[in-house]
Amino acid sequence: MRSIWKGAISFGLVTIPVKLYSATEQKDVTFHQVHREDGGRIRYKRVCTKDGEEVPYSDIAKGYELATGEIVVLTDEDFEDLPLSSSRRIDVLQFSPAEQIDPIYFAKSYYLEPDAQGEKPYVLLRDALERSGQVAVVKVALRQRESLATLRVRDGVFVLETMLWPDEIRVPDFAFLDEDIDVRAQELQMAESLIQTMASDFDPSEYHDSYREALQQVIEAKVAGKEVIAPEAVPEARPAGDLMAALRASVDAAKKQREAAKPRKQAEKPEKAEKQEKPAAKRKTRKTA
């Protein structure tokens, strides 16, 4: 695994340097949009809706649309000036029982690995947290976004789970919640009986992605049947500005070399002519018998 972030856990007066790794990966069969006839890749260009011109990535900024339809343009410098108090730090705010945190708040999971000099305080906090049976509520800034998170222990490693803010959780506003739906006691008892019948310990290894496996079999069958299109190799596209500059430089260099070679060739022609004429004057013809 490759670390995607470096920072430190700030716990009171203790600082534990750590590296951040993605704890999960989504395995899926990925596809490209291609031309049905020849399998060529379909490419998209970044085009401005006002002038119809393609815009290089370096000229693209972030725009916030107002209710009036007007756009407020924000550059990288605007984001650099924003205060992120927890930048490069995982600030421990409090410790709480894990059951008090609704799983709906959890967004993404990360592993934390200690640096060499932070191994001892890392293990100390890990063991103390595991013995307490609680989780640490922290604040962290990742990818220019500050969020709440929890620290818990899994297989001897800290797991950082980023959380959504309370105002990001939608309220389930459904009509049936206001209706008075009558459920009979016998029906409720039968449903509870069914739940008890199907109850068992959770083993994730018993489940698998049957759709992905079936899709992979379809792809393998097409490969075995030689139903594969080999598109022509397309050279990698270079930025238009760099390519044009390189072409112009190459043309100018070729012109200079050609112009510099002309006087040299003209100076060499008379010398060659003299060298060829002199031996010709000394030659004597021989009479044949």
Rank of each mutant, 00 (worst) to 15 (best):
M244C: 09
A249M: 11
K287Y: 11
S96M: 13
M198F: 12
V223P: 02
M1K: 14
I169C: 01
L84F: 15
M190E: 10
H208Q: 09
A175K: 09
Y21F: 15
P56Q: 03
A199V: 03
P172K: 11
D38Y: 01
Q189M: 11
V183R: 05
G63C: 02
V92P: 01
S205V: 12
P83S: 02
K269W: 10
K50L: 12
F79H: 02
V171P: 02
Y111R: 04
E259K: 10
A214W: 08
A175H: 14
G225M: 02
Y211M: 08
L84D: 09
L164V: 10
P114Y: 01
S85I: 13
E80P: 04
Y44W: 06
L20K: 04
L66F: 11
V159R: 00
W5R: 02
R286P: 00
D173A: 05
E77Q: 03
A23E: 07
V34A: 08
D182H: 11
E99L: 06
R41L: 15
G52E: 00
G118M: 02
E259I: 09
A185M: 08
K139W: 05
V72L: 12
A267I: 04
K275G: 06
K265F: 04
M163C: 03
E236M: 12
R36E: 14
R145S: 08
I169R: 04
H35V: 12
Q189N: 13
Q26D: 15
W5V: 04
G133N: 01
A253H: 03
D173S: 13
L188M: 14
M190D: 15
D102Q: 05
S193L: 12
G225E: 08
A61D: 13
L247D: 01
L84Y: 15
E236F: 09
L82W: 00
L66K: 15
E80L: 04
L160M: 06
R283D: 11
E168M: 03
P263T: 04
P204I: 05
K282C: 05
K269I: 15
R264W: 09
